[in-house]
Simulated scan of single mutants.
Amino acid sequence: MTKILVIEDEKIIGEMISMYLTDEEFSVYRVENGQAGIEAIRSYVPDVILLDLMLPDIDGIELCEQVRKSSDTPIIIISMNSKVNERVRALNAGADDYLVKPFSMQELKARIGVALRRYRPSVAEADTRSYIAAAAAPEMAVPDHGITLDLQKRLLIVHSQPVETTFSEFELMKLLFQYPGRVFTRDELINTLRGIDSYVNDRAIDVHITNLRKKLEHNPKEPRFIKTVWGVGYKLNLE
């Protein structure tokens, strides 16, 4: 059963979310402050975290950053604040999605589903992911190619040198590293970023890939790693 941790100090909202998700056959654990949330992440080990930004003991952005240093568990922000700069702050802090209150419970369930799909590969795909994890956890490294992803620090390292990436670029690179050789359609890549970049589209994906090539490739115009599959999308070539 999927485990949801709700960190929400408003009792009515927290209980409504908990009741709805329980009825939808999720396992739900709710706490009312940040410290209890940190303890619950360790003991309850949730599959998804729903995090309110206005907590009585700690700023939600700070808590998000703290969690992201040691965990890749999906974090969905639930907040009354609809300002763009606040959404950007949350996403830059490591949040995977952002829902503005009041929101539809059906939409919340759908957003949880999207977050889970990003972090739960199919059984066939899991073999590839397990191979990578066994080879280089907590890093994803490509032998003899000089490219490493440090998941905890969210760093792309090329020939031992850290390379700056945007949040979206890192998410794309992480997905490609998990499944080398697999061709991803633009729609699949868009779905990976949906919630991180509200304006993501085909053109945005192409721009992200172009920027990654500039950071990875010796000759970006003749890419060795991120290959275009014409009429379909992109893949990471490690051969």
Rank of each mutant, 00 (worst) to 15 (best):
E15L: 06
L53D: 01
E107W: 06
M173V: 02
I13N: 05
Y131Q: 13
P138S: 02
C64V: 07
R120L: 08
Q66K: 13
V28C: 02
Q66T: 09
E39D: 11
V232K: 15
E188F: 13
S104C: 06
R203C: 01
G195M: 01
E169R: 04
D150T: 12
Q152H: 13
I196M: 10
Y44S: 02
V100L: 10
M173N: 00
S130D: 14
G181D: 07
G34N: 06
T210C: 08
Q161K: 15
T228F: 05
T165E: 04
L149M: 02
D52H: 11
V142S: 06
E86R: 11
D9H: 11
V207N: 09
H208P: 03
D202V: 04
V6M: 00
L216C: 07
L53I: 06
K221G: 08
E139N: 14
E10S: 13
V114G: 01
S168N: 05
I78G: 00
R120M: 07
E65Q: 15
A40P: 05
L212A: 00
Y29N: 06
P223K: 03
H208I: 07
H218A: 12
S70W: 15
Y20K: 03
K153T: 03
G14F: 02
S160P: 02
S160W: 01
Q35A: 08
N219Y: 13
A36C: 09
R117K: 14
K109F: 08
D96F: 03
I157L: 14
I49V: 10
E222T: 14
G34P: 04
L151Y: 06
S82P: 03
V88F: 07
I205K: 08
D127S: 05
M19T: 15
Q66W: 08
G233Y: 08
E239L: 13
I38F: 11
D97A: 02
V6S: 01
D187L: 14
N92Q: 15
K3E: 09
G37T: 04
G233K: 04
M16Q: 12
I112M: 05
L53R: 00
Y199G: 03
A110D: 10
P46D: 02
M1C: 05
E86Q: 11
A141H: 11
L238M: 14
G94Q: 04
V207I: 14
V48I: 14
D57C: 08
S198V: 06
I190C: 05
K215T: 12
M140Q: 07
D150W: 12
E86N: 14
I12D: 13
G60K: 00
V88W: 05
Y131E: 13
V229F: 12
V84Q: 15
P121G: 12
Q178E: 13
A134K: 15
